[in-house]
Amino acid sequence: MYQCNQCGVTVKTAATRCPLCHGLLDGGPAGTERSYPTCSPRKTRRFWTEFGVIAAIMGFHVLLNLFVSPQVLWSIPFCATVAYSWLLVALDRKGVLRHGITWTYHLLPITALLMLYNLYTNGGGPALSWFPTYGIAFCIALSLLINYGWFFLSRRSALDVLPSQLIISIAGLIPVLLVVLRVIAFTWACVGTAVLSVATLLFILLAYRTKTRTMLQSYFHVL
């Protein structure tokens, strides 16, 4: 082991200088050890692999859009949604989103994206006329489906998905409520979303009654 004559300590880590005073050490390497592994360089390969896959998906859809239906640029919100989802996952991985992706992270941005798209397709004017009737219903239905996909494709437990699914399905009843209150005009999109929401609510209440109760208790901290 090494000795530092300045500090009077023995140094067990394989080194040439004292970790305290940075003076040269006396003694030999016998009995020393590698105390800690050296920091591995940050892996950037994963980033570039993901970037490649995302870029390929987006590129394919842009080309498909341009060749099949150039009159409606549906690939713009699609690409924006894909890029946004990737950003969310990357932020979640870095711990920026603190405790996972919640419903607000996809419901609200998708709504915003569609509003922007609506503006774009109507020549940039304040053309939000179709948005309340179709847009809200469409966003809610899309969010419900994303959650179903997340639940069935990932190995997450029902308790992970239940809170957001419950909230979104309750939100899914809003368009129909607005129709009843004559705030917006009747559309089949509102009815479809309401049906999907009611079906989801029934599914949750019948299949996960106990878990729903536990979830609500924990969510609102009631014992």
């Binding site: 082991m1 500090c7 009077g8 200088r17 970790p19 800690y36």
Partner: peptide, 20 residues
């Protein structure tokens, strides 16, 4: 700190994560 311990008769063996 460790010099103080040595001064008070305590033998100290150091390890570190940043060897030079």
């Amino acid at each position: 700190f460790f010099k103080g311990l040595v001064r008070d008769g305590v033998e100290v063996t150091l390890t570190t994560n940043r060897p030079e």
